[in-house]
Write a protein that binds this DNA or RNA. Sequence first.
RNA 1: GGCCCCAUCGUCUAGCCUGGUCUAGGACACCUCCCUUUCACGGAGGUAACGAGGGUUCGAAUCCCUCUGGGGUCACCA
Length: 564
Amino acid sequence: MTMTNAVPPVTRFAPSPSGHLHVGGARTALFGWAFAKGRGGKFLIRIEDTDQKRSSDAASVGFLRDLEWLGIRWDEGPEFVAPDGTTVGGGPNGSYFQSERLDIYNRYCDQLVAEGKAYEAWETSEELDLLRKEATARKEAFRYHFRGPVTAEQRAQFVAEGREPVLRFRCAGTAVTIQDEVLGEATLPAGEVDDFVIRKKDGFPTYHFAVVVDDELMKVTHVLRAQEHFTNTAKHMLLQDALGFRRPVYGHLSIIKNPDDSKMSKRDKDKVLRKAVKERALTAPPAGTVSAEAWAKWINDDNVQLSLDDAISLAESLKVTLPEINVDDFRRSGYLPEVLCNFLALNGWSPGGDVEKFDNEFLKQRFGLDRVMKTPAKFDRLKLLSFNTDAITSMPADAFARRCREHAEQFRPEFIKRLGDAKFALLMIACQERSKTLDDPFKSNAFLLAEDSTLVFSDDKNVRKALGIGANPTDGGKTGLDHLRAMRGILAGVGDWSQTAIEAVTTAYCNEHAGAKIGSVAQPLRIGVAGSTVSPPIWDTLVLVGKASALARIDRCIAWAQAL
RNA sequence: GGCCCCAUCGUCUAGCCUGGUCUAGGACACCUCCCUUUCACGGAGGUAACGAGGGUUCGAAUCCCUCUGGGGUCACCA
């Protein structure tokens, strides 16, 4: 029953349908992919959509896009056309949607019934709930056991009552020893596994049954899945024995947690928003964010989640940052897929020694179950950010420009429109060494999109200091505001609006009037055109803003500052 | 509560299987200093961990036991 080592492994990622890929799922997929592909095997995807309540539509496999973006491609599974035109998926063992395999499961159910290994059970959920409550009251775990054969009359009676049967597996009741490549060996004592349901009353198989049948039929050799399935493995082993199936090798992966120890969840976004709303004591949605109906539903029920678009607009309005949870969130935030993969792999696996930066190819070559951590990891976004920063700053300039542009096309189209090609290219050059993400050039330079007449000047400590508001004149008896006034005139006379020309006239001015201290002139200029003391290098910033806008903004700034 | 699993710096981890070279290494974060036209980058230092208690042993982070703490599971969800 055990696998020979000569057989190339087949692993699978088997999520329930979802529009988004959670980072925990991404890591499971990544490990499964690396394990199989590094050993000349196959990686496949199967959709576990046997719960009709979580109905499936086109968006249900949205996570395939995220997987592809990460560089994880599947040899078998749902078909998907990648952005580069290649078709991923398909394969001889379909359908890869469990909801389309009902007749297969039924065949095996029939087999078990015929062999006396499965039987109909007629209790209603209410009756079962009652039994469970009683067990809890006795401080016992509820276990369902065979209650004797049902006669033809009883059966007719149940049907007449309108009851519908489920199919339960008749469990042997022996101790089961789970062999796990990550967690080691564990023995569940006899009686721990009860006569669990294998087919629901709606005719769909339960997870346990579908998983066992499909892993057999799809020739899966290694099952890598989340640790929450660890004890379920006993059920699956019993089923495999009853059906005469092979036994795949198991490896259970620990979960990924938030830094505060809570489980990373898609609800985390709503949590942040609810907190902000509560702090501000808001009773209605800020204008232009969430619709009144959506707001009412959301505010009255903690289980309701806002749509992604609603959440984003509300977060912007409340000036809070939503935590990235899904792969797509990280993409939107400007993380590189190769960095995400690297970091994800490092949460729960390491190649040993001091190596921690590697690509998927390396992971593929080196990944093994023996070095997978047993303990849950906390997801440290700061370290991820640091990895991303390193990758971005060490990237060739043209690669950075290209990838930023792709990012902007998708998430920041307004910058492309406003800047035009030449200035967009300049922005890339000016920003690379100070960017931590592909989104930073845009996120930190919103002033580029502002209208000259509405640019907001930030009244903060740094601004006041640079402008010399409320302080004695320095540097040659002049305040920053004085410098700005003087530079306004000088800049107006610059014909060739280029970095070198601007730098030349400014340096000349500095040498004469500011004790050669560029900062005392550059900072007021920066405030003048960007509204704050932070921007890309000043000469680049001035070119980016353009001469006419720069002068208009400086004029407004001077007027604004004088009124302070 | 029953059952199962786990335990190294704040965090991710190396080391553990094959006890000594570990007064425990790296990375992120943090602190100090340097660089600097802002922000960021960068450079040089620094603080910081074997959960507790018992064994075994000449010797334990490494092996054993107990405790404590954490996690998972106990659905007609996956």
